[in-house]
Amino acid sequence: MSTDALRLRPPHHRVDRRAILWWTTRALAVTVVLTAAPAIPAVIFEPARPWLVPATAVIGVVGLLVTVAMPVWRYRVHRWEVTDTAVYTASGWLWQEWRVAPMSRIQTVDTARGPLQRVFGLSSVTVTTASAAGPLEISGLDHELATRVADQLTETTQATEGDAT
């Protein structure tokens, strides 16, 4: 491609650094559960070990690789931005996604925090539009910041004309 190719610029703000810890913990938890699934039978049934031990090893190694690589990678990709006219987010790691929703079409703004997010003082802001094709989600924001962003979004959408459909 030529040097002046048109590109999406990344949104301005990164998510909170603590999100790395949050993603790491989450990935670790999933890895432990998935590894345990073949590992526990391997301990109990001796005849099945030739199959189960390699399976455990493969799942464990892949899981650990994901746990190490994914959170940092995600942190580099996950970004967000709220302008006067639109909300703009980037997310994903291997598969990446950029979403834009205009203020005038925003229907609801939610903040939500899972137990794990709460441990790290994080929150997610979810912005839905009339399309069921999935809401925009900004995950891993500082809780205070998330509340402020949600408030600001609410204010802006209230000031914007449109019937949101």
């Binding site: 993603w23 989450r26 994903g92 925003i106 229907q107 609801t108 703004v109 939610d110 903040t111 939500a112 925090r113 899972g114 137990p115 794990l116 997010q117 997610s124 979810t126 009339a130 989600e137 995950s139 509340t147 949600a150 408030d151 979004l153 609410t154 959408t157 209230q158 449109g162 019937d163 949101a164 459909t165």
Partner: peptide, 26 residues
């Protein structure tokens, strides 16, 4: 990828007032 702990219905229910309900739609 949204984590399994991202949305818990009971949490939403606890939230006394939804932080934001835009005017346009419900």
């Amino acid at each position: 990828m949204s984590g399994p702990d991202d949305f818990r219905p009971e949490e939403r229910a606890q939230d006394p007032a939804p932080p934001a309900t835009p005017p346009v739609e419900s």
